[in-house]
Design a protein around this nucleic acid. Structure first.
Lengths: 251, 251
DNA sequence: CCAATTGCTATCACAATGTGATAAATGGAG
DNA sequence: CTCCATTTATCACATTGTGATAGCAATTGG
C-alpha cells in the first residue's frame, strides 16, 4: 500500500512544518523532526521557493508567498468542506432514510456546514446555522476530541440551558457523557435538543488523525432497537472514512 | 540561467491553474494551456492530492484541500508582504535619505502596508492607513497598471477632491496623467496630496509580471534636479527588482 | 437504451531528477 | 575577530519522473 513517496510529499511536509512554526527554520531541529538530512532540506526549501510557495524573509525565516496566498483568497475551509461533503451526505441520507448533517466546532458551538434532508424527515436546523454543542450528537463527538484543557475550559463555561426534559445540564454529568462518547467513538442525542429529534454522530478524521468535523444521522423517531443504531453507525463510519480519504494523505 | 525545473514547479503550475479556474479541470484544454501531456497532468494531479494540496470533488473538479487551507489561516497576504518588504524599505530610506513606503490598491484607495521613516523626514501617513490613489505617486503607478476597463471605471467614479493647488482633479487630465505614468514606468506626486510632500514611486512586479504593489520615496522637499530624480528612480527600481526576486519564480 | 465522449488509470523503456555525504562559503552575534 | 548556524556547491548513485499507448470507467446525448 505504501506507494513510493514523491519528492512532492516530503517538500510539502516541510512546508507544513514551516507554516506551523511561524516560518522559523532551524536546519538541525527540522532534520530530526522530519527525518530528512539537512542537505535535502535545503534543496526542498529551494524547490518550495522556486515553485512560489515560500519566500525568504530574514536568515532562517521562510514565509508563505503572499502571491500564492492571494490565489487562495476566496477559498475558505468552510465553503470547500461543505462542497466536498455534500455528495456523501446525500448518499447517506438515502441509505439511512434520515436527514444527515456535517458540522464542526466554532467558538464552542456546532456550526452545521451541510445538510441533506430525507423526505419526511425535516429538521429545524439550517446550513451555516449553529446549535449548542453539549447536547447535540455532533457537538458531543467534537467536544469529546478536544484536548483535556480545552474540554475543561468548555465545561466550566456554563451554564448549560435545559432544552428538553432529557438535556444533560450538570457539568459533571456532561463531562462523564463526553468521556463515554469518546470511548464509544460516537455521540448520541436522545431527544436532548428537541423533543422529537434523535441523532447519532461519528467523527471525521483527516489522514493524520486530526478531527475535521463530524457527520450525523437525525430522525424525528427514536431508533427502534440497539441493532438499528448499530447499523446506522456502520454506515456513518463508512462514509466518515470515505470523506477522510477524499481529503487525502498529506493533510 | 534556466535552472532545470523540478517536478515541483510543473505540478504547482497546475495547482495555480486549478484554483484560478475554480477547480475545473479539462485535460485536453489544460494540456495545451500548460504545455504538458495529459498523462503527465494526471500524475501531477495525484501528486497534488497525496501531498494534501487538493481534493477531488466531482468528476473533473479539484478543490484546494480544506485542511491545507486551514493551515494557512492566520497568514494574510498583507501581513506577509509587509514583513517581507520592510527590510528593503529600511535599506532604501537610508540610501535615499527619504521616507519610503510600500503600498497597494484596495477598493480604489492606496493602502500603505509598510513605511520606513528617515529621520527628519516625517510624513503624515500611517501603516495600514489609506490615501486617495489619483493624486499619490504609488496610487498613480497602481492605477496605471489596471486593465483598461478597471481604469475607466475608476476614472468615472469621481469626483476627485482638490487636496492642494496642484492636485489634478479633471477626469480627462487624470487619465492622461495615468497614461504618462504607465509610459514612464514611474509615478510622481508633485505636491498634489499635501503642500510639503513630494514623492516618486515605481511598481513591484511578481515574476510573472503581475503588479503586487509599489514602493515610493517621499520627502518634504522637492527634488533639486531631474538628475536627482533619476538617481532616486534607479535605486527605487533596484529595490523593486530585489523584492520581485524574493517573491520567487512561481508567483 | 446504446453509442460517443471525456475522465481517469495502468504500464513500460528511457531520461532526468532527487538523494545525501562532504566540504566550503556566507553572514550575524558577541 | 571569532564562533556558530545558515546556506550553497559538488558528486556518484539510486530513485522518480516522463510521455506514448492502451484500456477501463463513468457521464452525456441522442
Amino acid at each position: 500500500m505504501t506507494r513510493s513517496m514523491s519528492s512532492f510529499d516530503k517538500a510539502m511536509a516541510l512546508f507544513g512544518a514551516l507554516v506551523a512554526q511561524d516560518g522559523v527554520f532551524e536546519s538541525d531541529a527540522m532534520s530530526v523532526q522530519l527525518g530528512v538530512p539537512e542537505s535535502t532540506l535545503y534543496r526542498h526549501l529551494n524547490a518550495l521557493h522556486s515553485a512560489g510557495l515560500i519566500c525568504r524573509s530574514r536568515r532562517g525565516r521562510y514565509l508563505p508567498n503572499p502571491v500564492f496566498l492571494k490565489k487562495l483568497e476566496g477559498y475558505t475551509p468552510h465553503a470547500v468542506l461543505s462542497e466536498l461533503v455534500r455528495p456523501f451526505l446525500d448518499q447517506l441520507s438515502v441509505a439511512l432514510e434520515t436527514t444527515t448533517h456535517f458540522g464542526l466546532l466554532e467558538n464552542d458551538m456546532v456550526t452545521y456546514l451541510a445538510k441533506s434532508v430525507f423526505e419526511g424527515e425535516e429538521v429545524f436546523t439550517r446550513e451555516n446555522g449553529q446549535l449548542e454543542a453539549y447536547c447535540s450528537a455532533i457537538g458531543k463527538v467534537l467536544l469529546s476530541h478536544m484536548t483535556v484543557d480545552e474540554q475543561r475550559a468548555y465545561i466550566s463555561s456554563g451554564p448549560f440551558p435545559k432544552l428538553t426534559d432529557k438535556t444533560i445540564t450538570d457539568p459533571a454529568a456532561i463531562e462523564r457523557e463526553l468521556h463515554r462518547t469518546r470511548n464509544k467513538g460516537f455521540g448520541v442525542d436522545d431527544g436532548e435538543v428537541h423533543n422529537a429529534l434523535y441523532c447519532i454522530a461519528v467523527p471525521v478524521f483527516s489522514s493524520r488523525g486530526i478531527v475535521v468535523g463530524a457527520i450525523s444521522s437525525s430522525s424525528s423517531q427514536r431508533w427502534a432497537s440497539p441493532k438499528e443504531q448499530r447499523d446506522r453507525l456502520i454506515q456513518l463510519n463508512g462514509v466518515a472514512q470515505s470523506i477522510s480519504s477524499t481529503l487525502g494523505a498529506g493533510a
